[in-house]
Amino acid sequence: MGLSSKTIQVKIKSSCDVFLELWKTNPCQVPTLTPTTIQNCQIRDGEVGTIGSILFWNYFHDGKDRVIKTLTQDLDEAKKLVTFKALEGDLLELYKTFVTHVQVDTNGSNNLVTWTVEYEKLNPNVPDPDTLLEFYKEVTKDIETHQLRN
């Protein structure tokens, strides 16, 4: 099985920079903005907002409570990109490798959040992570709703 990738773009009305800053420097605040999808985020090692920090997440996906431990793999200011790599958790029961990139871009009056997942299935019967991309879309909309209220 080789490495595959899938992408979803979500147009938002709120600030891209504020959205990215949340994921980059304060991911532990995400659960307060998305309580139906992400319930908890705890720093396990390192310092939030630095490459190499390890976060532990509790989330609700496909009708089940799930967990994941991630490594902050990249914080690219120029590309407005944050990358998390799965180290442990439910996703690794299906995928040998799972990396999530969240990137923002302002193009004229359009603010876009792009979620890209790179993954390698453990076997050919494992589904593509389409429902996870929908999950990321829902998370984005929850954060946007909170940002527009403030």
Score class of each variant (00 low, 15 high):
residue 94 L to W: 11
residue 25 T to Q: 12
residue 33 L to W: 03
residue 42 Q to I: 14
residue 91 L to S: 05
residue 81 L to Y: 00
residue 29 Q to Y: 11
residue 45 D to E: 15
residue 74 D to N: 10
residue 98 F to H: 03
residue 71 L to W: 10
residue 34 T to N: 06
residue 101 H to I: 09
residue 72 T to P: 08
residue 65 D to R: 09
residue 27 P to D: 08
residue 66 R to H: 09
residue 53 S to A: 13
residue 25 T to N: 13
residue 92 L to N: 02
residue 44 R to D: 12
residue 85 K to E: 14
residue 28 C to L: 12
residue 35 P to K: 00
residue 70 T to P: 02
residue 86 A to T: 06
residue 48 V to T: 12
residue 58 N to Q: 10
residue 27 P to A: 08
residue 86 A to F: 07
residue 28 C to I: 12
residue 43 I to R: 05
residue 93 E to T: 14
residue 47 E to K: 13
residue 80 K to H: 12
residue 62 D to A: 13
residue 82 V to G: 07
residue 44 R to L: 15
residue 83 T to R: 13
residue 76 D to R: 00
residue 64 K to S: 09
residue 42 Q to S: 13
residue 55 L to E: 07
residue 87 L to I: 08
residue 52 G to V: 04
residue 74 D to I: 11
residue 90 D to Y: 01
residue 71 L to T: 04
residue 35 P to G: 06
residue 63 G to K: 02
residue 92 L to D: 01
residue 71 L to Y: 10
residue 100 T to D: 10
residue 70 T to I: 04
residue 77 E to R: 08
residue 62 D to Y: 05
residue 41 C to I: 13
residue 38 I to N: 00
residue 42 Q to N: 13
residue 51 I to R: 12
residue 28 C to F: 09
residue 66 R to D: 11
residue 82 V to P: 01
residue 55 L to I: 05
residue 55 L to W: 00
residue 88 E to P: 00
residue 88 E to V: 05
residue 69 K to E: 14
residue 37 T to H: 08
residue 42 Q to P: 01
residue 90 D to Q: 05
residue 34 T to M: 02
residue 62 D to G: 07
residue 100 T to F: 08
residue 56 F to A: 15
residue 100 T to Q: 12
residue 84 F to I: 01
residue 95 Y to E: 02
residue 80 K to P: 03
residue 51 I to W: 07
residue 30 V to S: 02
residue 98 F to Y: 10
residue 43 I to F: 04
residue 64 K to Q: 11
residue 58 N to Y: 06
residue 91 L to N: 07
residue 48 V to I: 15
residue 89 G to Q: 03
residue 73 Q to R: 12
residue 66 R to G: 09
residue 89 G to W: 06
residue 78 A to K: 14
residue 100 T to S: 13
residue 64 K to C: 05
residue 68 I to F: 04
residue 85 K to Q: 13
residue 35 P to M: 03
residue 46 G to N: 03
residue 93 E to C: 10
residue 79 K to A: 15
residue 80 K to T: 08
residue 96 K to L: 13
residue 51 I to N: 11
residue 33 L to F: 04
residue 94 L to Y: 14
residue 25 T to C: 11
residue 61 H to R: 00
residue 81 L to G: 00
residue 40 N to W: 10
residue 49 G to H: 02
residue 35 P to F: 01
residue 32 T to A: 14
residue 81 L to H: 05
residue 65 D to G: 09
residue 100 T to K: 05
residue 99 V to S: 02
residue 38 I to R: 01
residue 75 L to P: 09
residue 51 I to A: 12
residue 79 K to F: 07
residue 69 K to W: 06
residue 81 L to V: 01
residue 94 L to Q: 14
residue 25 T to A: 11
residue 40 N to H: 11
residue 68 I to R: 09
residue 35 P to Y: 00
residue 68 I to D: 04
residue 31 P to E: 07
residue 86 A to W: 03
residue 65 D to W: 06
residue 68 I to V: 13
residue 58 N to D: 13
residue 92 L to C: 07
residue 98 F to N: 02
residue 25 T to D: 11
residue 95 Y to C: 04
residue 99 V to C: 05
residue 94 L to P: 01
residue 73 Q to K: 14
